[in-house]
Amino acid sequence: MNAISPTLNGEALPPELQALFNSTDGAAFEQALDGLLRQREQRLFRALGLLARDLHNAMRRIGGDLAVEGAPATMADARQDLQDVLEMSAKAAHRSLDFAERMRPETESMAQHASEVLAHSSGDPAVAALARQAGEFAASCREGLADMVLAQSWQDLSGQRIKKVVSFIGSVENSLLELVRLTGALAGGEAPVAAAKISSQDEADRLLSEFGF
């Protein structure tokens, strides 16, 4: 039987592979092939792990750079900042509502007084005109207050979007750490118990270093 000389992209294979291809020992061939594949996998997983580490470091660097300009340094800080925005906007909306609730009874009593004066003005046209004007003013104030109350519903609409972004940031952070954990486990490190939720930068760094990244 003639020896087979397989080529890869036109180039001859390394001699050890050539020898394996021509070997009649099936088990040795399989074993050698498995070994080669495992080697390739290990390299891939290690590369993935390093990629995850680079990504993580890049994010920290970006955070550090932005922090100089007064922006949040970490994802946790960013989440907290958004949470603060939510609370501040709620506080502002409540203050406007306080005002509307305080003013509404005053418009009612003004309208009441105006109609009483109008009833007892006994023909004085100046008094009647002023009372009528006061009554109209009270009515338009009341309408304006109702509009102002409604306008505060934008706090709820913007707040809901902020809440969604807060949870999105959290899920990006978790996915990134999950990637680090997974690539670390594939690259040969021991997977930590049940991929517990990561809540702090320190925990994230500890986890990364467990896998040698």
């Binding site: 409540h94 509502l97 509404r104 109702a146 109350v149 707040g159």
Partner: peptide
């Protein structure tokens, strides 16, 4: 029923207004 206290208060205000 609303998780935003502002919205609960707005609805309450509107109901009174109505």
């Amino acid at each position: 029923v609303d998780d935003f206290s502002t919205m609960r208060r707005i609805v309450r205000n509107l109901l009174v207004e109505l």
